[in-house]
Design a protein around this nucleic acid. Sequence first.
DNA 1: ACAACCTACAACCACATGGTTGTATGTTGT
DNA 2: ACAACATACAACCATGTGGTTGTAGGTTGT
Lengths: 121, 121
Amino acid sequence: MTESDEDRADAWFHALGDRTRRDILRRVLRGEHSVSTLAASYDMSFAAVQKHVAVLERAGLLTKRRRGREQLASGQVEAVRSVASMLTELEELWRGRITRMDDLLADADNTIEDHNTRKRK
Amino acid sequence: MTESDEDRADAWFHALGDRTRRDILRRVLRGEHSVSTLAASYDMSFAAVQKHVAVLERAGLLTKRRRGREQLASGQVEAVRSVASMLTELEELWRGRITRMDDLLADADNTIEDHNTRKRK
DNA sequence: ACAACCTACAACCACATGGTTGTATGTTGT
DNA sequence: ACAACATACAACCATGTGGTTGTAGGTTGT
């Protein structure tokens, strides 16, 4: 269904709507980081950072793999690309607006021609 | 400041994080619509839709112009492009990861060479 | 002039969100 | 075996968010 597409978009944009999460995403896109390594970078509790990581994970922007007792997080660039392509689709809607304006002009020309032909008739 | 960049990003992604707002944005990217025209499309109060439009406007994703008693909203494609380019920057961070892996391999080679030279010495 | 219309905004409500602390569980290295 | 570490998760709290209704002001057409 197209329904779950919107669900994914909700998750994506919600996840990206927090600056701490965007920063985490930048780090894990550059390379793997354990949750506690990430947590050390921010002025908030470990639990808070862990929740942010969970939000990014649920949105599919990040995946985790175990290495011993730690959990290594890495960014999912395909998901980032999906979000970007969604925005490109939005941009194309706007592009269509121009086309439609051209169509209107074409219609206007036709109308004028109609007028002319009618007058001539 | 780079600070206000993050503020803008917060506003962008928060605005895009609601499916009603995304839908409104799609409509106004295709062409101008009055707030009440937009409101007629959704199963919620006029005030609710008006708030969504206000959120999009504050995020810079949409602008309004008056025409008599109505307010015509249209999508700001430059803002959409800005959001897209922010995602492209994220993607480039990931691309750098590959480069860094190459660097690591190069370092490993150097280490081996060091070993060899040491052994020889 | 005035009724209908379009918008703005305040007040309110239920629920989600981002943060906290505390507790439990698994993993490691000595 | 055990202390230290890494994670997960529940409970809680303040604030934010998305929705409602109600009120008020500006614009239009007759």
